[in-house]
Design a protein around this nucleic acid. Sequence first.
DNA 1: CTATGGCACGGATT
DNA 2: AATCCGTGCCATAG
Length: 470
Amino acid sequence: MFHIPFHSIRTVTTAHLAQTMTLLSLTSNELQQQIEAELASNPALEMLDEKRCPTCKRLLSPRGICSVCSRPSQSSPEEPIVFVSTREVEYYGGGAREDDYGDDMGSAACDDLPTYVLRQIAPDLEAGDRKLAAYILTHLNEDGLLTVKLIEVAMYFHVPLARLEAIKRIIQRADPIGVGSDSPREALLVQLDVLAENGRVPDLARILVDEHLDAVSRRQFAELARLLHVPAEKVRAAAQFIGENLNPYPGRSSWGDVRSVASQQTGVYYRPDIIIGRLDDQPDTPLVIEILFPMGGTLRINPLYREAIHQAEEEQKGPMREDLERASLFVKCLQQRNHTMQRLLQRMAVLQREFILKGNKHLKSITRASLSKELEVHESTISRAVANKAVQLPNGRIIPLADFFDRSLSARVALKELITTENKPLSDAELVGLMAQRGFSVARRTVAKYRAMEGILPAHLRQSSGASYG
DNA sequence: CTATGGCACGGATT
DNA sequence: AATCCGTGCCATAG
């Protein structure tokens, strides 16, 4: 059964459970819609203005306390700070309706991706440019790449090419970064630019992507090293960086079939629901985990409405009571959801600290079941809480929350390392031995599967990446 | 004969 | 109860 945290046991109805469960599995933008709908249909609910912390701009708790700035004297940096926040949720939710986006979007009732991108960039565009952007966005293929030439669009609309190029540049920097590029190469370059602004990027990466993408994907590191007059090791490192941080097909990062497409699972994802950062961006400080709440302000029951019941006509009282009941249920469910998410992430951050800070290699395989035991909730609660949510890590990467439970990720990373540093192509059977040494006991067949997932060719088709003489 | 990929089964996960 | 994942067996390619 469903475990309720002790302090919130009270009027627990089945409706409560059902609604909490559904709310739990919602993304923050879905939650936003849910809340908006509820707010619109139920007069007993009201949204208080948001109050923000003057120093860090994060949302204050109803009592006016900022979770970050006035945090209790943290005893250890291991303990993460977890809180619900609205920071950085900058939807163009205001006046934007679908019909603002122009009429020429074709019959293709836009997939998620075009609308999603358009929402982000709409505020940055003139009204006229929005139409152009919408047009461009409807000509993306499933990989998120452009299927028309800008020059054609320019002729079609009779606008200068430069204007379209400017729009394209804006699109490319929107969330699945690199979306709207002409080629995987261009997408990668944009991603590199953006990453370079936020952090360090191997200097080789750019030239590799720009001029030698083919060779990189064939893993001809030795030749590249010779060509570029740099150590092979640097080439490998840069190539690895590219593989881990960039995604040549920005569109493929949508939910669902992530793992089936070989080597695409390290993609760029959509808007995060959770942001993990470090306090003041200092190393060795507690992790700050923000569970994004899609709307500013605090949701509560309208006290005036409660008053109004007493003065209402007798036959009105019934329906009004119901409204009130629904409202308080909804608020409770929301609190419940936030509470669960907080506890979940709190625990998760402790368990997977290494992974969060140092990357895939350090992922511990935790199962949802084990976590549910620790937190004393039902397994399905964890499942729902984890489903369909994206986390932004301190290094800026956005991954599905479910990746925290990937049983084989660290094994795959190890495998990739083995292969990229091999001197002669190793057969799957040989890899089994090496993997065992590193603490991964897997079957030969499984090595083959991991290889496939990472998009690594079988041994006999692999270029020797070490010295050409064996 | 060796290295791989396909299919299918069973146990774990959801 | 449905689905996913690791693995064993077998066919096939080199």
